[in-house]
Design a binder for these strands. Structure first.
Ligand SMILES: [Mn+2]
Ligand SMILES: [Mn+2]
Ligand SMILES: [Mn+2]
Ligand SMILES: [Mn+2]
Lengths: 217, 217
DNA sequence: ATAAAAATTTAGACTAGTCTAAATTTTTAG
DNA sequence: CTAAAAATTTAGACTAGTCTAAATTTTTAT
């Protein structure tokens, strides 16, 4: 059985591992978990003792199969709760992350199973992130970033890479909703900002910074 | 902001205070929280420092107004989650306590408000316990124990005093459901066991031990 | 009223998780 | 290829919550 803290480390290691090649570093973990490198080292020794990570001093860290299984289980819970909060309780997609951050640690297999059923076996959370299967598989999406699309491309907005309230509210103000169909009207040669035509609405400017955090198709 | 542990102590103090006159004792708290008296003493000093309890060494303990407000808030969350688990997710009333024990600590005013709305502002939890108001009032019920009723009394089963899985499953097997109307057919003079006639069913024997834990009317 | 029993608190220790400061190892740059 | 810089680990300390054993206070029963 893992503590909240251990669960959060596992989740963070998983997250960082998907964002870069090779092992996850102590400093990266310290930054993400808002702790100091020394504290991370202590925790890494503990997780290694429990066989949840592969860890050699100074060499970075990688989840074991069991560690990954646990990480995906926590991510599954997090995303299912986010669906519940948005679909059933009517929260905005910009309000649910912190609450799900707590709910994900409630330990009951049966609860997750029933919640999944109750929600109708959703495939994606409110931010377009895929929900790991009960068996512990992370579904592949094949999405690319809006910033990688070209002029004339007709694409569908499928997810976000950034989950901050500020970013999500910005999208709301631009009428950029998940699922909406857009066409790339123009890409500014100087700042790479994108002019997109939303299916049933007026054109919207999207900065390169924003476009890098939007997943399409 | 309180820790899980502090919240659990407050809840336990509230619970014990309603069950007996006068101050709550260190030993009673140790037994309920499954810790040792020495640990309780440490926590009492901390809660007193935070002005959540009135505490004089060796003299037992009583919640302050703020302490009671917090205790009722936690009880409110616990009971609302129990309603959710039974009404929405289809859990049995004997399965929800431990899960609610975790969910009650999720900290979000907004979450509780929306959950309450979603559930249709329930007045009672699955065990017949009244749900404290958002303002922090514990509704009075005026129920009495089945063991205090007399022969011929026609009463309605309204709640339970014991929440263990074993007890609740026993009631299920006897077809004693919350809300059902029963008539007291006979009280055994020797062991005080009660023979009750359920509205639309056959008569059931209820031991005195069980009758003491059933709330009626 | 006093001595024994019971309840409670204090003293000292332990674990989980964190920190700062210092030491060590790895990486990078010249 | 080495020396400085960066990353990481170790050492030692702190807090929250817990424990056992010993000391103290309160209660109970002669
Ligand atoms: Mn999230
Ligand atoms: Mn999400
Ligand atoms: Mn309960
Ligand atoms: Mn209940």
């Amino acid at each position: 059985m893992q503590s909240f803290t251990e669960e959060n480390y596992l989740k963070t290691i998983y997250y960082l591992a998907t964002r870069q090649e090779g092992e996850v570093t102590t400093n990266a973990l310290a930054e993400m978990t808002a702790t100091r490198a020394a504290s991370v080292t202590d925790m890494l020794r503990k997780l290694a003792d429990k066989q949840l990570i592969h860890y050699k001093k100074y060499q970075g860290v990688r989840l074991t199969e069991e560690g990954e299984r646990l990480a995906l289980q926590i991510i599954r819970r997090h995303r299912l709760w986010e669906v519940f909060l948005v679909e059933k309780l009517g929260f905005g997609w910009d309000e649910v992350h912190d609450i799900a951050e707590e709910l994900e640690h409630v330990r009951s297999e049966e609860l997750v199973t029933r919640l999944d059923t109750y929600l109708g076996y959703p495939q994606f959370d409110p931010h377009g992130d895929p929900i790991p299967t009960p068996a512990g598989q992370m579904p592949e999406t094949g999405y690319r970033k809006l910033s990688e699309a070209g002029p004339g491309d007709s694409i569908r907005l499928m997810g976000v890479l950034e989950h901050s309230t500020a970013f999500l509210q910005h999208l709301d103000r631009c009428n950029l909703t998940l699922g909406c169909l857009v066409t790339i009207a123009e890409i500014n040669a100087f700042d790479k900002s994108v002019l997109v035509q939303i299916e049933s609405g007026r054109p919207v400017f999207v900065s390169h910074e924003v476009a890098k955090n939007l997943l399409v198709n």
